[in-house]
Simulated assay, not measured.
Amino acid sequence: MSDVEVEVVRVFTCGGAGGNPCPVVADAGTLDAGAMQDIARRYRHESGFVLPPEDDTHDLRFRFFVPNHEMEMCAHATIGTLWVLARRGRLASAPVRIATVSGTVTGFVQAHDDGSWRVEITQPTGRVVPLASERVDTVCAALGISRDALADLPVHNAATSRVKTLIPIRWPEGLHALAPDPAAVEAACRAIGSTGLYPYAVLDGPGRTFEARQFPRSSGYPEDAATGIAAAALAFGLLHDGTVEPDDRRILIHQGRAMGHLSEISVRIGFAGDRALGCLLGGEVAPEDERGSANEGSFK
């Protein structure tokens, strides 16, 4: 196999720091699924791969892998990959129509005056389903907390792309103190039909600012510094509960503070009258110093 360049970026940075690392392969046409997963295993992060479109209704096709499996959709990898393509002058059209396993995603790339770019992507209207009481007990046990740690809001399974479990924690300090066992998280997620536990707390209700953490079901690592589709699901959960007003003002979700990688994710819900149509999910991206070549070891 010829050399394959892997560029690592940090997605959903906050003040130019933090964010979630994302390896990107901008030319993945020579890679099969096994090679893509090997790259994700090597870098230990969700990874994005750019492929030619298979039809004339899309501009690009993306695939996504974590160390343990392929994902149908990864929001932060989509944003990071679009940012890499924009920096390389590879985006000929705006908006960009992207084919993913979960369906079509539209990307919007806006240039800043300093030559950098801000990226937003579409997500469909969220589905929000409150958990039954016994399922809430399962979630609390997995997190190692009692019900007293919960805020007076429902626990939901919610999704725009993949199901995440939204768990309202009474205080940010309680959120930061969580230290669940990954095996318990995986067992709970499988029992309740979720791909990750997403506990959150309100930082500034009127300012629509929240703090969250993501404990994935089986991605190959215990916690995620920024999870775009979980943040999108949270926005619709907040709307469902009346925690945010039904308008298109930006909702900000901070994530990764407990990991030392503070991230900031922006969600804007769109409406037709009183009906939510979907959302725009976005954030800032920064280059990582690390670059690599996938032509060594298992990548041959």
Rank of each mutant, 00 (worst) to 15 (best):
M1V: 14
D3Q: 12
V9K: 00
R10I: 07
V11Q: 02
F12L: 09
T13Q: 04
G15F: 01
G16L: 03
G16D: 06
G19W: 00
P21F: 03
C22G: 02
P23T: 05
T30G: 15
T30D: 11
T30I: 09
A33Y: 10
M36I: 04
S47G: 09
F49I: 04
L51M: 12
P52G: 10
E54K: 09
D55K: 04
D56I: 14
D59P: 11
L60K: 02
R61Q: 14
F62R: 04
F64Y: 14
F64L: 11
F64H: 01
V66Q: 06
V66S: 01
E70V: 13
H76C: 04
T78H: 07
I79C: 10
I79H: 06
I79S: 05
G80I: 00
G80D: 05
T81Y: 04
V84D: 05
V84H: 08
A86D: 03
R87D: 02
R90N: 03
V96D: 00
A99Q: 15
A99Y: 00
A99K: 15
V101S: 14
G103E: 12
T104Y: 01
T104E: 15
V105D: 02
G107S: 07
V109N: 10
V109I: 13
Q110N: 07
A111M: 09
H112K: 15
D113H: 13
G115Q: 08
G115A: 09
S116P: 05
P124R: 13
P130K: 10
L131F: 08
A132Y: 07
S133F: 11
A141G: 14
L143N: 03
L143K: 05
L143W: 01
G144I: 08
I145V: 15
S146N: 12
R147Y: 05
R147D: 10
A149N: 00
P154C: 14
V155Y: 06
A159C: 11
V163G: 06
T165E: 05
P168V: 09
I169T: 09
R170Y: 09
P172H: 12
L175Q: 03
D181G: 04
A184T: 04
A187Y: 01
A188P: 02
G193C: 13
G193K: 12
S194R: 02
T195W: 01
P199V: 09
A201Q: 08
D204R: 00
D204K: 08
G207V: 10
T209C: 14
T209W: 00
F215A: 01
R217F: 02
P222L: 10
A226R: 02
A226W: 00
A230W: 01
A231R: 07
A231Y: 13
A233T: 04
L234F: 12
F236T: 02
G237L: 06
L239G: 10
H240C: 07
H240D: 07
H240Q: 14
G242V: 06
V244H: 08
V244Q: 08
E245L: 14
E245Q: 12
R250F: 00
R250I: 08
I253D: 01
H254K: 12
G256P: 06
R257F: 05
M259F: 05
L262F: 06
E264V: 09
I269G: 07
G270N: 14
A272D: 14
G278W: 08
C279V: 00
C279W: 00
L280I: 05
G282A: 10
G283F: 07
G283Y: 02
A286C: 13
R291V: 15
G292V: 04
N295G: 15
E296H: 15
S298N: 11
